[in-house]
Simulated assay, not measured.
Amino acid sequence: MADRLGGQQYSTERFTTFVDAVVAIAMTLLILPLLESVSDAGAANLSTAEFLEEHHGQLLSFALSFVLIASFWLEHHRLYAGVKGMTGGLLWINIAWMVTIVWLPVPTAMLGQMDEDPLQTAVYIGTLILTQVTTLAAKVYLRRHPALTDLPSDVLRRGVLGDVAAIILFLIALPIAAWVHPIGYAALLLVILSSPLERLLNHATARGRRGRGTDDARDGSDH
Rank of each mutant, 00 (worst) to 15 (best):
V38I: 14
D222E: 12
H55S: 04
T205H: 02
W97V: 05
F15R: 06
R199V: 00
A81F: 10
L59A: 00
G220T: 06
P182E: 04
T87D: 09
A137H: 04
M1F: 08
A43W: 05
V102S: 14
R212E: 04
D117S: 12
I172N: 04
Y185W: 00
Y124E: 03
E116L: 14
D222M: 08
F66W: 14
R158I: 00
L34P: 00
A26Q: 13
L193N: 05
H56I: 02
L119R: 08
L104W: 13
T131G: 14
W92F: 15
V23N: 10
M1E: 01
L68R: 03
S47Q: 13
R199T: 05
I129K: 04
I176F: 06
V38W: 07
R143H: 04
R14Y: 06
I167D: 01
E54G: 13
L59Y: 04
L130R: 08
I69R: 10
V140H: 01
V102L: 15
Y141F: 15
W73T: 05
L128D: 03
L34I: 14
T12A: 09
V38L: 12
R207W: 02
Y141H: 15
L91W: 06
I183G: 07
V19Y: 05
L156C: 09
T134H: 12
D117M: 13
D154W: 04
A173G: 02
E198R: 14
I125C: 00
L201M: 00
I192A: 14
F15N: 11
T131V: 13
E36P: 04
E13M: 10
D163F: 01
H223N: 12
W179K: 07
S194F: 06
F72D: 10
T87R: 02
T16V: 13
L34E: 11
S37T: 10
T48M: 13
E50Y: 08
R4I: 05
A204N: 02
E75N: 11
T131K: 08
H223W: 09
D154T: 12
M86S: 01
V106M: 13
L161E: 08
L60I: 13
T134I: 00
T100L: 12
L171I: 01
W179E: 02
L189H: 03
L30P: 14
W97K: 11
A206R: 08
